[in-house]
Amino acid sequence: MENKNMKRNNIFEIYTGIIGLAALTAGTLNIIVWSGIYQTIDLGLFTVGGDDFFRWVWGSLVVMFGGIMLISGAKNIHKIEQFSKAFLGAVMIWIVAGTDIFAVVCENIPAGEESAEFFNSISGFISAFAPPYAPAVVLLPFTLVFVVYFFRNEEK
């Protein structure tokens, strides 16, 4: 039983580390692209780059710090103080991803300046959610495991 728990903890530690590393890499790459060293990187599902200084740079910094916190909380993640750090890192990624999704929703409810209509069509609204996505949005589903762990811990 104890071995099984240890194995599970080890898997969770590695998983958290990988997610953290991915977030750190995505955040850093975004800042490198913004600084002009590289051109925008488009990998089909997600894109590194942007046209909005505020969302792009500030948001990338948050994702980068989120990655650092996930990595720092990965070791001994079964300990509550370590999990809290990793959880906070995941929250930071949710903030960026959530606000990105909220921005897409807000921009696509209205029909657009040229249209005579006030509201966008349903198909027009749905098509706005097609890829490529920002890195934080891609990372979002992979960080949801921390919610499950958080509530399990709260129950205990």
Binding site: F54, R55, W58, G59, L61, V62, F65, G66, I68, M69, L88, V91, M92, I95, V96, G98, T99, D100, F102, A103, C106, E107, I109, P110
Partner: peptide, 21 residues
Amino acid sequence: PVALAVLYAFWSIFSSFAGAL
């Protein structure tokens, strides 16, 4: 870093809702 994230959310939601929507 958490404060940076919270203020980012504050600013982002503010501009998306009030500006874009």
